[in-house]
Write a protein that binds this DNA or RNA. Structure first.
Lengths: 218, 218, 218, 218
DNA sequence: TATGAATGAGCTTTCATTCAT
DNA sequence: TATGAATGAAAGCTCATTCAT
């Protein structure tokens, strides 16, 4: 498992054997196949043979690109967190003109992402569970969490400064809460996929953040 | 696997081969051993041989009580959700004199539970992940979710009626949000166990639910 | 396995633990259950647990009456060969007034038995196959073979003496051939159950034994 | 298991994983090892581990070539029936100048084959017994039976036309009888291997088929 | 760069048998 | 006489990994 001392995972996956264009494509195809199979069957049901078969290559070829199963999983981890980072991707938060609008868009976009990319969230949940026991995964995911938090904290701070949000808002606590809330909603969506409609939450969340009900706008 | 047609799992654990008091104890010992091993290594690393060894019995004895690994997992599921239901258990919601007090105690007690019983929450997270692909687990956990939600909704409704909470509070949305928030905090606690101190969240949550900041007394 | 030095199997099965009426009934029920299961699934699929279950007793009870699986099989062997010996049973050859009539009835009755008691013949085939490697079974079945041969040789000798059969008939060879023929027809009946109608064989066999075609009777 | 809809088994043995010459040899070595072990211990005593060990390969290698034990058994079945089909093999019917000579050679060659290749006949008996419960095996063996019958019927028809055999001979019935007789003699040979000397049968069979005793020349 | 073949170690499950009660 | 509980020893099968080509 290629893993640096600080717990950060080498984002480019295995450094060896990635010199030609074709090789890179093979690696991507394998990572995608692994991603899909984790989404379908979880880590519990992930078999390197199935990954190779889905990518259309021999099992030995998989091990040529990813010396061990762990290396393959690291590549999936990197691919999964990258999808959150890529601006403009369906999972990234949408642009908005003002802080409150950005916050309004936040949960809305998260809920849409959960519905449109259930595979990504399934894989992230699998990774979160594995993070319980894998320091490498934990470190990588922690960074993603922090980025989200900082992102939201930026909105929140701007909203407070612009007078759109409560002046006594604990920005850090609110940012953490919002990330937690969106994660928790995913877990609940697994159990009751039809029951959860996001709009009502947004009303309540705005009430909380602004200190006044939405309808009582000036 | 004893499972009714509506997908609900027989809450009383497997009925198979539990004729004597001794047999019941063995079954419990095996369930506990499986629980511990899931907490330690996840479903991915759960081996029936290890469960038997930890319970101090032969592997064939395990299969005498639990015909298949799945049956054992069902028993663990039942045992895990039961811990939330048993009143007075460290994981059950604490009693409180008034609605606001109960709500104040909610996240506080959840956070404490997460810190004091990390195993239970680890197992629940494993089960949640498995619920992605297992309708039986999904159904059982959905019921637990619903109980929590109804519980909280009761507090919230009482709080609104007593004038302790905002009159325009969307009780259902708030109940769902609180459950989601507590679940999401667990996921974040996995990544950053030391950073999350609950008290700040409680201040914000009360602000949200009451419509006024705690410190700003009239 | 209770087995005498000369290879003969103790016909009464295990001598121990058979003192009361009830005990004998249990033993018979278990033997019958084993017989039925061998007919259904063969020795390859015979499980003592299934035998006990079908007889409605605990597996430990089976071992009380039959200390080992081999002992149970010996009991089934004894029961199977007994059915051929019991006069008047559907598997025993029918009485007839004269030698030729007796011979005429022979294959006819064998064919009927194969159709009416497929289980018995299935078990006998299983036993024949096991006889390849089990001297005890071989010895017991050899005795049954010899009885049939002697039986038929008696008919044949009487037929020759009465002038009904060819005077130069090799009685021993004919007796052996008839037994072989009936066994071989069973094997063929397994493959093509509908194709084999016995009457045409009888015509040919009489031609052979009498030296003249049936239709050319004086 | 490669098996067509009509129940016939793919005669060319398992198609799975036989890409190189070496692979083909391994497959044959495994099939031979399985054949030998079935002859020695029967299906009841057939263990994949033992087959692999006898072929000198790892158990996983066996499963590389034969995904399941059933597939291996299918290969043994195909190999066994092939030995009767290969002209010139010790088990194939011998060539002869005239119909009567061919018939004379038939049982003689069968008896010799039974004595020289007891393993082959043991395996065929095991397969016949399994055919009781396995439609695939039944279908394959039925075809072998039919080939023998047609073979013999050809001889018989030619013999009748050449005036060597009785003109009123029921050719079909006689062909079936001869196959049955040879099968039955094998079963008897299991019980009494020394007693059965074939020549006497042949005298009787010629008497039957020709309508005159061999010694009684016109 | 890619693969067919091979394997050590291990997995869940089975089974005949035993024994205390 | 009968049984619930327990087990040693497999059995069929799987899986990540290796290696010669």
């Amino acid at each position: 498992m290629t893993q640096a001392v600080d717990g950060r995972v080498d984002q480019g996956t295995a450094e060896h054997a990635r010199h030609t264009k074709h090789g890179e494509e093979q690696q991507e195809a394998l990572t995608r196949a692994a991603f899909d199979l984790i989404a379908e069957r979880g880590f519990e049901g992930l078999r390197t043979r199935d990954v190779a078969a889905r990518a259309g290559v021999n099992i030995a070829t998989l091990h040529y690109y990813f010396p061990s199963k762990e290396d393959l999983i690291q590549a999936v981890l990197a691919a999964a967190v990258a999808r959150f980072r890529r601006p403009g991707s369906p999972e990234a938060p949408p642009p908005a003109p003002d802080p409150l609008g950005q916050l309004r868009g936040f949960l809305r976009s998260r809920e849409r992402a959960m519905r449109e990319s259930p595979d990504l969230f399934a894989v992230l949940l699998e990774l979160s569970t594995r993070a319980l026991r894998d320091e490498g995964i934990r470190a990588t995911m922690r960074r993603t969490d922090e980025e989200w938090r900082e992102h939201l904290a930026g909105y929140l701070r701007a909203g407070v400064e612009a007078g759109q949000l409560r002046p006594d808002l604990d920005v850090q606590a609110a940012a953490i809460s919002l990330v937690a809330l969106s994660k928790g909603l995913h877990l609940q969506m697994i159990m009751t996929p039809d029951e959860l409609v996001g709009e009502r939450f947004n009303v309540e969340i705005e009430q909380w953040l602004t200190g006044r009900s939405e309808t009582t706008a000036p």
